[in-house]
Design a protein around this nucleic acid. Sequence first.
DNA 1: TGTACATCAGTGAACGCGCGTTCACTGATGTAC
DNA 2: TGTACATCAGTGAACGCGCGTTCACTGATGTAC
Lengths: 202, 202
Amino acid sequence: MTSRTALKKPKDAYHHGDLRNALLTVARRELDAGSYEQLSLRELARLAGVSANAPYRHFASKDEILAEVAAQGFRELSARMDAERHPEPKERLARLCDVYTTFASEHPAVYRTMFGAEKQALMDFPVLQEAASTSFGRLVAATIAAYGSGRPDERETLARASALWSLVHGWSRLVIDGVTCFLPEGSIAPASVSARAVIAAW
Amino acid sequence: MTSRTALKKPKDAYHHGDLRNALLTVARRELDAGSYEQLSLRELARLAGVSANAPYRHFASKDEILAEVAAQGFRELSARMDAERHPEPKERLARLCDVYTTFASEHPAVYRTMFGAEKQALMDFPVLQEAASTSFGRLVAATIAAYGSGRPDERETLARASALWSLVHGWSRLVIDGVTCFLPEGSIAPASVSARAVIAAW
DNA sequence: TGTACATCAGTGAACGCGCGTTCACTGATGTAC
DNA sequence: TGTACATCAGTGAACGCGCGTTCACTGATGTAC
């Protein structure tokens, strides 16, 4: 029985073709199109040209779809970070900060989903946890490469990694949530300026 | 007619007493009790011991209540910052960062409401904008007191204020959203350590 | 090659839900004379 | 002081809504013999 079912997925077979991926694609597209509010499962089905309950063939629940979208977001972020290969460790660290905030600015709704502000339960999905850990690991590793290793006291390095990560995440959220726009003129500098101001000082 | 209505509010009169404040109190209490999900207008009315539509006597919409709760949050944050009077500017700045993250940790759901992650529309309420601007102004002013003034080039000071604000906000959100808990052991340092690491380096 | 059968990705209708908001109203409170 | 009236903070019922999810089903696809 198991050996039979193992062959069952010819990748483009059956009625729709590949509804699972279609749903994920549509979800991602919807988020990127600016739907800041939580999108609905029925809407996703509608956009995929399929009945409201069809998604349940491929996902156990709405949350499972969102968790997968979030995980894909983290994977993309990690990939972008990996593509940044500047040889000078501090410069590379600064550029990773740029990569981070750029991603957030380009995909605000996806970014929100990744951090589960609305849905605490998303964090329970292992697929999301793993993808997220990988992304954060990149930033921590780059910080260690820039400042750590030699010293016996790594707490300081850890504090620096935390500070940078908090900085880029905070800046991203302030911008995404539209907070900066109702502040006194110019009271927030671009993230890259802020991050570099910190990195340069260390 | 106007002169008559000017006297109309004896402060504890009428049926309920002071439903407006009762609703705000109940909303705040609910948020603090850990209701991360969006609370409903009907639930607030229920908790205030009043029918579902009674709130409309005092607020135009649900959003108006949330905006007022958020504004109160910012006012409280500002008040806490004002209470911090350490004479040494850099130390005071570091302590303001602590005040900020402490507030967020103590009132996560209120903090979220303040930053309208779920409700972009909240930002449109002037009462909220004003309260928020005041809070941010405190942090900017403290940064200027610590680093600015003398120099002609204030861009650097602005970048520093942005960096610190992003840092405390980012750290707060990471903690509030439960992100830190699924990271490799100890990969985030307490906010005060991170903030002080930055302030000390400058 | 043809037939009987198993699999499984879809459908259509319905479920129960709680929501924000509106309506016409009631009844307590305050005010003018 | 008593009465007639205006004000206004509440009530109860209902609105229409879209939601996530479940149910019994259909019909296309793949498989064994």
